[in-house]
Structure formats: C-alpha cells, structure tokens
Design a protein around this nucleic acid. Sequence first.
DNA 1: CCGCGCAATATGAACGTTCAAATCGCGTCC
DNA 2: GGACGCGATTTGAACGTTCATATTGCGCGG
Lengths: 335, 335
Amino acid sequence: MTGNRAGATLEQVAAHIGVSRQTVSNALNAPHKLHPDTLERVQAAIEELGYRPNRSARGLRTRSSGMIGYRLTPRDRGVLTPLMDDFLHALCAAAEARDRHILLFTAPLGDEGLSVYADLLAQRAVDAFVLAETVVGDPRPGWLAERGVPFAAFGRTWGPGQAGAWVDVDGAHGMAQVVEHLHSLGHRRIGFLGWREGDGVGDDRLRGWRGSAEGLGLSTEDGLIVRGANTIDAGRSGAAVLLNSAEPPTALVAVSDAVALGALALLAERGVSGGVAVTGFDDSPLASATLPGLTSVRQPLERVAEHILLLLDNQSVSGSLLRPELVVRASSERR
Amino acid sequence: MTGNRAGATLEQVAAHIGVSRQTVSNALNAPHKLHPDTLERVQAAIEELGYRPNRSARGLRTRSSGMIGYRLTPRDRGVLTPLMDDFLHALCAAAEARDRHILLFTAPLGDEGLSVYADLLAQRAVDAFVLAETVVGDPRPGWLAERGVPFAAFGRTWGPGQAGAWVDVDGAHGMAQVVEHLHSLGHRRIGFLGWREGDGVGDDRLRGWRGSAEGLGLSTEDGLIVRGANTIDAGRSGAAVLLNSAEPPTALVAVSDAVALGALALLAERGVSGGVAVTGFDDSPLASATLPGLTSVRQPLERVAEHILLLLDNQSVSGSLLRPELVVRASSERR
DNA sequence: CCGCGCAATATGAACGTTCAAATCGCGTCC
DNA sequence: GGACGCGATTTGAACGTTCATATTGCGCGG
C-alpha cells in the first residue's frame, strides 16, 4: 500500500513475502523455476505492491533497453505520407504487445545520418532499428548488418545481395486486384497514372498493372501511361492527358491516393464526364474523406508491423511479401 | 581504437589517460570542476574512444531515463490529422536538441488509458509526458499533477482551474489575420465554414473570425456561418449553402484545410465561378499540394515544441499562447 | 543409514554510472 | 612553521536488476 508512490523494488516485493530477490525475479523471467505455490504468492505480492521492473536496472544488467529506434519521416512540405504515419502507429502497437517501445529520432539521409544511429547504439538507447523508406543505395542496411545490429525494414527497395531482413507489401498484386475489379465492371481500356521511373515501389505497381492487363487481354500501350510526381496536381494533369487522347480510357488507375485525388478533381471540374472510374493506392484517410469515396488498396500495416517485430527477434528469415487488400468505394463504381 | 565495437565505458576512458572514473564523469556533467588541462585531456580521450555514457546506467543512478512519453494519435480512418504528425516531428527534434528522446505509446482515451501512463512511470521508462489533443474533461492533467509527474500539453482545451503547463497557438489571432488579408483584397462579405459547436479549437477560431470582421465593420450574421464536421465533404456542402444564399459571400474562410479543400472542390466543379476566395487553417501538406495553392495559417510547431520542452524542465510557467503565421497562396488572390 | 540427485530457493557479484565523502597538494595567514 | 582553506582529484557506496554459483530440503536407491 505505502511506498506505492515511488514504485516498489524487487527487494521490497521479496521482503514482503519473505523470499529472496531472485525468486521474485524468476517469477517474472522464468516462472517454471518456481514452485506453483510460491509463484502464486509472488504474483499476488507484485500485484499488491504494483511492482514493475525498473527498465534502467534491467537494461544495465542485460545490456538491452527494450527500445526500438525509428527514424521519423522528415516532413517535406507538400508531400503526403499518411501511409508512414499509419505504419508508425501499427509499429508502436506491435511493439507494445511485446513489452517494447519505439524511440523516435530524426536523422539526415545518407552517410552523415549514420552517426545518429551510431550514437543511439553507443548509448545503448536502442536494441534494434526499424527502417522505413529505404532508398536505392541506402547505406543503413549494410552499415547495421556489418555491426551485427538487429534491424528490419519496411520495404525491399535496396539492391540484391544486400543484407537485412525486410517485410513488404506486394504492390503488383494490389494493382492486379484493381485491374481485375475494373475489368469485371466492364472496363476494357484502363489508363495508368504513375510516378516517374526509378522508384522501386512505383515501378512495382506499374508492373502489376501491366501484367494483369496483359493477362486479361487489355491494351498496355504507352498512350495509356502517364508518369509524374506524387502530387494532386500531377494526377490532375495526367488525367487530362489521358482523357484528351484520341482513344481515352474509361478507367484511371492511379499509383497513389494523392494522384487519384487529382484525377477525381479533374473529373469533378469536367462535370462527371462519361462516368470514368478512378482508383488510388494506400487507402489513406483521404480515400474515404473524399466524395465519391475512392476505391483504393489497403496495405496490411498491422501485419507488416507484427512481422517486422518477429524479424527483429529472429534474424534468420530474410524477407516476406504480404498481400494488400482491395477496398471498393464509389469512385470505381459510377458509370 | 579497439574496443570500439562494444562501446567504451567511463572506467576505460579513465584508465586510458590515468585518471579516475569520477573525473571523466565530471568532464561531462560538471566541467567547471576540472582543471582546464585535465578537461582537455579527458575530452580528447572521450573523442578518441568514441565514448557515450550508457543510458541505462545513468538512468539507474539518477532515477531518470531521458525519455519523454508521447501518446500517438489514434488513426481513425477518414480523419486527417497531418498537424499532429508535424507536431510530433517538431517535438522529436526539440527533444534531441536537449539530449532527450521521445518514447511512443498508445493508450485509450479516458480513465482506462491512465494505466498505461502509470505503467510507464512505474518502470521509469519516461521522466515526463507531453500531452496532445487534450479534450474537455481529460483526466490526464489532473492525474499527472497529483502525482507530481512533469508534463506539458499542446493545447489549452481543459477547463479553468486545471493544473498543468500548456502551450497553444492563438487560433483567434490567426483567423483575424485571414480576415484582414481578405479585407485588404477588397472582400466585404466573408463567410465562415466551421466545425460544430463545443470544440475549443473550433470555437476559438470562429471567435477570431467574428471579432475581426466586426472590427472591420463587416457582417457576421448567422447566414454567413455554416458549421459541420472536419471533412472535405462538409466543406463542399457548406460552401454550397453559402454560395446559394441570397447574398453570397465573396470569400470563404474555413476552419481547417480539410474543410477548405471541400470548398475548393465545389468551386472547381462550378468552374471557378466569380472568383471566390478560399482560405484554410493549419497549412497542412494538402494546402500546398492543391491547385490553386491554399492560403492558410501556419502553426509555429517548432516554437511550440521548443516551448513545451522548456516547460517540462521549468514547471513554474503555466502557459503560453503563440502567434501563428498567415501563408498567402493563390486561393485567396484570384479575382 | 548414508550419500546421491534433483528441485527449489538464496547469496555474491556485476552491469556503468553518479552521489557523498575522503584525500591530496599547495599557497596563505597568523 | 604549522594549522587552515580551497581547488582538484580519488574512493566507496549505491541505484535495481540478472547471472552464476551456492545452499537447502527431501525422496530414493543401494
């Protein structure tokens, strides 16, 4: 009862029921070593005193902090990254489920950012890192692997032969679902609003569109593809190009929700001309906030996060690809 | 050189130059206690060995972790909270500048969420909390104050008499800037697209619109006000109501960027009818991603975060109100 | 009946730091 | 010239855990 304010210690819990430190410690870390009756008494005392092990003391002894480092995505003005925010939330929840926590930090891209990682490790502030938004030529996976630091990445963007565990979402498969959905609604000419070439994620999604369309006997000619930035504007102008072409598509598949939003805006300006279907990707909050609701592809971020935490503990698996889920809303259904 | 992998300890640094532990410790925590020559030698050794103090050991001894707890905003589908994401980034950067870090967690709203806070404190995983999105009747400020836990809140939403330090942005003043800007462009009839009554932030902004308009001799009649949800849709329909009225406004002041986006969408559908100006609030990434660029009010999140960290260390100040900044883009300038 | 083995619990040490107090060197004042 | 004071540095202890090892109790086989 008393002493609750300052937080009880292992020793106090032990004294309270007349056992030793180690017995209480074992109740938490190796319950099978205790006599069932003792275990029960210890657990009751822990409960009664509201005991929670001191993280610093535990960390000092075990040389681990229970913290997972995560670099916060820089907030570039004008760029929408709701997906990463959702991922962070999922990651945080997954970590908590395993009695760990996320430690945030900021760091520049490239080699000079590595000193931040080094610093966190030197301080033993984190046990492991979760990498997100790895880019081509990212120095982090190699650097961490060299030093034997546990890590896992969301995204498989780095080159082959690179070390490190990753979890990613099968964007190509997501796009295939989109195309099949539109095909089943009767669309036979489906345009693609993509990002510029060279982005692993964007190229993967384009590959999915192309493969699926070919499989269904649909055209994938160059005239059906427009590539640009990941902005609403780019989506608007790209949609204009496709719709102004000699043989305009009846459906526009966008590589992201932001791009899709631009296409929707253009259609709204033109007065819902001819019932052109639009789809996005990532199922961001935008997708359901707009009217019509945007058909999109939801990434299974909870499963991604779960999987990443699994990989941190078991560095034997190298990577896994998860399937996203099609979310149908009004933007693809109007005719 | 060697021993770099595992990280040097205080003792190793000391041995390296033939001084004691404590001397090295003082070099970090109380440099004035050292002879300048010694200080220099110690610093050189620290540099050479790449020494960083072990957080767990330090935390164990000083009963503090250097961590600041922050509850991640739950990701409700369909709700846009880019502002809080930006704030988190600013907070993280501000913490790093003071050699602290942000520890993320999730917790339900209301009393049952308090156990998460209690748990983090009992484990001594955090020294302090930063509260965001406090709601009316929020149990956290009182609970934390009772226990003498340092904390500071972003937002002044709880009732008077409540304990706790806060930092907030003067939304009313931001709105006044918007209205004055529109007035200077010649607008004499300015509508307001708000949130439903009862939201502290929304009511504050409405107050700013009203006060400023009255001061300039403009009408603030009920017919110029539409209130609804914080969605794109609500903005669209609200704008329609105002523009269809007998005496439509020439400018629409929205309580948020999401709402403004809806107004912009409606105007786009109607074909830029009559050069109606639109403004938003928060200067979210959306504001600059849309076309025309959305005039908005930027919250000084970096200063808010700096201020909050100041408050955590010095609990003598109770609160401060910072002024936001008008960001003019094309949406308010077209005529 | 003695010793063996095993399950259950207890004890000493260590993790790396900071606090409190002790020690050392040295110039100064009476 | 010896006690004093003071700046600079060192030493012992403590923070709260877990690891490695020791001790205890007890059933059981020879």
